[in-house]
Write a protein that binds this DNA or RNA. Sequence first.
DNA 1: TCCTTTTCCATACACTTGACATATTACATC
DNA 2: GATGTAATATGTCAAGTGTATGGAAAAGGA
Lengths: 200, 200
Amino acid sequence: MPKQVDHRERRETIARALWRVVEQRGIAHASVREVAQEAGISHGAVQHYFATREEMLVFAMDFASEQTAGRVADSLRAFGDRPHPRDLLRVMLTEMLPLHPDARATSRMSAAYVLEALHDANIHTRARDGLTHGRELVEQIVRQAIADGRIGADRDPATETNLLLALTGLTPLIELGVIEPEAALTAVDQHLERLFSGEA
Amino acid sequence: MPKQVDHRERRETIARALWRVVEQRGIAHASVREVAQEAGISHGAVQHYFATREEMLVFAMDFASEQTAGRVADSLRAFGDRPHPRDLLRVMLTEMLPLHPDARATSRMSAAYVLEALHDANIHTRARDGLTHGRELVEQIVRQAIADGRIGADRDPATETNLLLALTGLTPLIELGVIEPEAALTAVDQHLERLFSGEA
DNA sequence: TCCTTTTCCATACACTTGACATATTACATC
DNA sequence: GATGTAATATGTCAAGTGTATGGAAAAGGA
């Protein structure tokens, strides 16, 4: 058997290099050659792991989603087996906002993902399915919280879910330095507090 | 005097062509040549009106902001001289969301603007200043509404402003078809209703 | 009629891109 | 050590990029 490298790990290394390029220079500069340079390998090596540039981008984007989900799972361990839905939602939202370096990298990647999806049928499907799945997850949490009496029964689960996800709209304000990260957290907490205000 | 064309009008024509390219093919395809083709002129002609590609992009982006502001002003005329702040905010938000073709074009342009601002110092300054200005406008409306007793005095103007602007976070959900435009409007109205719930 | 000024355009240049083809290196097994 | 194959490096090519340049076309004043 010839030399065997961890294929998955190599792809992740390249994906992280791509993140850095996207974060520092924008997705337009995320060419095979520049990503290769950032990763410290030849562009031929990148081609060995990704047949096309698009394949590389799609992997890097999916990987960003996975990493975000992973960070949420990590943070949730501190809250035990059955975390309060407010804490759960708070972790999800704060990990989606660009409040620390890792989250910023994946956030920017997501933004580029969405923008790309608007004129690429393939990516559109992937992004929509991913977002729809995430949205259903949140709606399920909201419905359960209503059933548990933690959110007022007069609230509409679908609308509350949409309003929760809308909080990611704070991203441009944070990224451009219009508001401080603390102000964003205050807004998130304020919204969650009102949502769960009917709690016993 | 030599032939005189309306310089401003020509630049706006090119800007609109750029919007169409951005909307249909993404900002990556907004090259001087492709924009020229979309506008039905030579790329030399485009160069006559914009010395560089960046100048063209910046103009198209600023023009998008102006057009959005214009649409808001137009819609507001129906509400008379002193519109209710809730109506004012509702118009501002709905014109920022991609709920009709014009708004979608400018919304996508704005999204590209923000993404570009993250790694371009020049655009960063412009985008931040523009957003900061818009945010101050909204905060002023909120403060006045509190002073007028239309919003509860217990509300923090800064946080409420941030939560209002966060509603633009519905954009990706709408654009990718995760939620229907009506659901977005429902969410906006729900949020506004609660904000003004303390009204006499 | 010529001249000046503005508008517009074709071309050229240097450069980057993605994709592909080819060459080289590294290493586990026979 | 020979061999085969995965991993990596390098080269090539057509297509596309931004922009500099030179000059045509148009329109009015002299």
